[in-house]
Each structure stands twice: as C-alpha cells, then as structure tokens.
C-alpha cells in the first residue's frame, strides 16, 4: 500500500489513477462517518463523491501539514453540513424511520460490537441520533464514530473546545432521554 503522500505526488504528476487508490484507501472510513452525520447512505454517497472530487481538484493546495485524511475529512464534513442544510429533512409524520440508511450494498465496513446490539436497538439508537440537534449530533458522531479528540472536533467544527465539550454532553444527555423513552428497561 502506497503512502498518501506518494499517491498525491503521483496525482499531481498527472496520474489520475493514483487518486483512485486514495479514494479506495479512505472511502470506507469517510463514508461510515458521513452516513451517521447525514442519516442516509444515499446522501453519504453523494457527499463522499463531492468531497473526493473537491479534494482532487484542490490537491495542489494540500501542503501536508496535516494528514491527508484529516484534510479530506474537513472537506467532507463541510460538504455534509451544507448538504444537510440544503436538503433539510423533515421528520416523517408517522415516526417511521426515514428510508435510505441501510447500507447500499448490504456491506458493513466495520461493525464494532456487532451482535451486541439487537437490530431493534440499533434502529432506535440511530433514530434517536438523527433526532438530535445538528450540532449535538455532529459533535457526538465525530467523537464516537470518527473517534476524534475534542481538540480535533473543535478544529473540524470550527468552534472552541469548550463548545465541543458542551455539545457532546448535551448530545449524550438528549440521547439518553430519548433512548430511555423508547427502550424497554431490559434494553438499557
């Protein structure tokens, strides 16, 4: 596996296929997080594609001062926020899950704790997560799904670390309340 920088150098030298390798290298991680940020794998696919294209187009601006994935993720996060804003979702009237979250091809890249959560619980957690205020959800997803530190989240969300701390706390607090309402005591 080539290093990101080597692949970038090849891209800048005109070897477009090298970018394909970069995409394949990072697509699952990026896509997995985007899907949770956006609540839809279809939206995640659109945004991921946009982000990669945008990254390719601006590859010469990448100075290597941060990891390529971090740079890419900032672009993708920004695209996701804008996408969500453009296509602001309205809660379904009957409370059913919005369509489109199931993996488009049924694959799961990483499935931590698979089998530990029932399908029903997964659905409830996902639904509760999607109902959170956008800033709270984003902060929590960046923490729990993307695994970023508060400092990194602050950088991505362009806000102070204290705000990140507050948002994550509020996200957990709200999520706990939503789940306690929808889960049976034995599920908690």
């Amino acid at each position: 596996m080539h290093s990101d920088q080597a692949l970038i150098d090849r891209c800048l030298a005109g070897e477009t296929e090298a970018f394909g390798e970069l995409v394949q290298k990072h697509q699952d991680r990026l896509f997995g997080t985007l899907a949770h940020l956006l609540g839809s794998v279809h939206d995640a696919a659109d945004v991921a594609q946009d982000a990669f294209v945008l990254a390719y187009r601006n590859l010469s601006k990448f100075r290597g001062q941060s990891a390529f994935y971090s740079w890419l993720f900032r672009i993708a996060y920004n695209a996701a926020v804008n996408h969500r804003r453009r296509t602001r979702k309205h809660p379904s009237l009957d409370g059913r899950e919005q369509p489109g979250f199931e993996p488009v091809d049924g694959r799961t890249a990483t499935d931590p704790g698979s089998g530990m959560q029932s399908d029903e619980r997964v659905r409830l957690v996902r639904s509760a997560l999607d109902e959170l205020a956008e800033e709270y959800r984003n902060a929590l997803v960046l923490k729990e799904i993307e695994g970023l530190a508060y400092e990194e989240i602050a950088s991505v969300m362009d806000c102070p670390v204290g705000t990140v701390r507050s948002r994550i706390h509020r996200a957990r607090h709200d999520l706990r309340e939503k789940l306690s309402r929808s889960l049976k005591p034995s599920d908690l």
């Binding site: 477009t16 296929e17 970018f19 394909g20 995409v23 394949q24 697509q27 699952d28 990026l30 896509f31 997995g32 997080t33 899907a35 949770h36 794998v41 995640a44 696919a45 991921a48 594609q49 990669f52 294209v53 390719y56 187009r57 979250f101 199931e102 993996p103 488009v104 091809d105 694959r107 799961t108 890249a109 990483t110 499935d111 931590p112 704790g113 698979s114 530990m116 959560q117 619980r121 997964v122 957690v125 996902r126 997560l129 929590l140 997803v141 729990e144 799904i145 957990r172 999520l175 706990r176 789940l179 908690l188």
Partner: peptide, 26 residues
C-alpha cells in the same frame, strides 16, 4: 452506555462504485 450504543452502531461500507465514480467525474 449511551456512548457505547453510538460507538457500536454499524458503519456502512462505501459503495464499491465510489472510486470509479469519483475518477469518472474528475
């Protein structure tokens, strides 16, 4: 537990066509 619930959510994999679609577009 709340934190673990979120961490344990399945991570959907990217569509296999993604890289090709990106390359086509660029």
């Amino acid at each position: 537990e709340v934190s673990e619930s979120v961490r344990a959510l399945p991570r959907p994999a990217a569509p296999p066509e993604l890289a090709a679609a990106v390359l086509r577009k660029v």
